[in-house]
């Protein structure tokens, strides 16, 4: 592939390596992989939830003030009180009944799961949200009103904020203290769509590949090609764009395919090649020859000899 293609592929691979995974082994014994949520996504979910609870508090406050105008004097107090009564129960109840999701988490496709491969426990949910009060909201609200604190409490507060911020930054599972105590993990649960099988089409006899043609690439290149072909289905009627032709000629050169491939056949060629390559690699894998990428030959050279 060309140098720009390479760097794009490398970037994709780096992106892939940055993602962190957590494996749960349910009682059925088949490991289930979850992607650990990024701190950014969790922060967004948190902001959405804070927005919701603050909104609910304000609405309730206005309602109460309409009912009892005498409360006008203590409106700040009322807000603080309602906040306390709404916040923790909201998180606990929503995570308990929506299976680990608050509305904010639902919007960002996040979910709390138990780290031990069983269902979420009430205790886990309660403790992670109680600790959220202590970890996030208490220092947060003290920080807003920090002017009235003495040096001692300010120092305690700063130390506490430092610890609370440091913990999720420096552990692999990005857990808060509350997650550790409750034995929970926040993961991303997207909903991918099952697309048609690229290899499940009537075989074309137009292109024939021999075993030598298929020796060159490995799984990574196959998946990269799959991503490209998902955007360009075989029955696409528009003339193939330049990138398709470029990729096709790159592959033709690399595998040493000698038959001529006209430009308007480039897409058909790539689909045929994908099918052949996948069948080849899958077959190899069944017999224990796992080829992760195009460097598989070098690896086997060094280990076998």
């Amino acid at each position: 592939m060309s140098s720009t293609k390479m760097s794009a592929a490398q970037a994709a691979r780096q992106q892939e390596n940055k993602r962190r995974w957590f494996e749960v082994i349910p009682p059925e014994g088949v490991p289930v992989r979850f992607e650990i949520a990024t701190l950014g996504a969790r922060f967004t979910a948190q902001l959405a939830d804070i927005g919701l609870t603050v909104g609910a508090t304000l609405v309730l406050t206005f309602g109460l003030m309409l009912l009892a105008p005498a409360l006008d004097e203590v409106v700040g107090v009322l807000v603080a009180l309602l906040m306390l009564l709404i916040r923790a129960p909201y998180y606990i109840i929503s995570e308990l009944f929506w299976n680990g999701q608050t509305l904010g988490k639902r919007a960002t496709k996040l979910r709390v799961i138990a780290a031990d491969g069983r269902g979420l426990t009430t205790h886990g949910i309660v403790i992670r949200n109680l600790m959220k009060e202590v970890e996030v909201f208490m220092p947060g609200s003290l920080l807003i009103a920090s002017s009235g604190l003495g040096w001692f409490w300010s120092a305690v507060l700063l130390l506490w904020i430092g610890i609370v911020l440091g913990v999720p930054l420096f552990n692999r599972q990005r857990s808060r203290i509350g997650d550790m105590l409750g034995n929970t993990i926040v993961v991303r649960v997207p909903r991918p769509v099952l697309l048609p099988d690229l290899a499940d089409q009537s075989p074309t006899e137009a292109f024939i590949f021999s075993a030598e043609h298929l020796e060159h690439y490995g799984r990574f290149e196959l998946e990269t090609l799959e991503t490209l072909l998902r955007r360009h289905p075989e029955n696409e009627t528009t003339p193939p764009d330049a990138s398709i032709v470029a990729v096709a000629s790159q592959i033709i050169k690399k595998i040493g395919y000698t038959e001529p491939v006209p430009d308007d056949q480039a897409l058909a060629f790539l689909h045929a090649f994908y099918r052949a390559q996948r069948a080849f690699l899958e077959n190899k894998q069944v017999y224990g020859d796992v080829r992760d990428d195009k460097h598989h030959n070098q690896k086997s050279d060094t280990t076998d000899v």
Binding site: N99, V189, P192, L194, L198, R219
Partner: peptide, 21 residues
């Protein structure tokens, strides 16, 4: 073990994960 269809694997992993939950 047998499939190299990335879309299928991602879909199945998520389906099983959601079913487990």
């Amino acid at each position: 073990d047998i499939s190299m269809d990335r879309n299928l694997l991602v879909y199945l992993e998520n389906l099983v994960a959601r079913a487990f939950l």
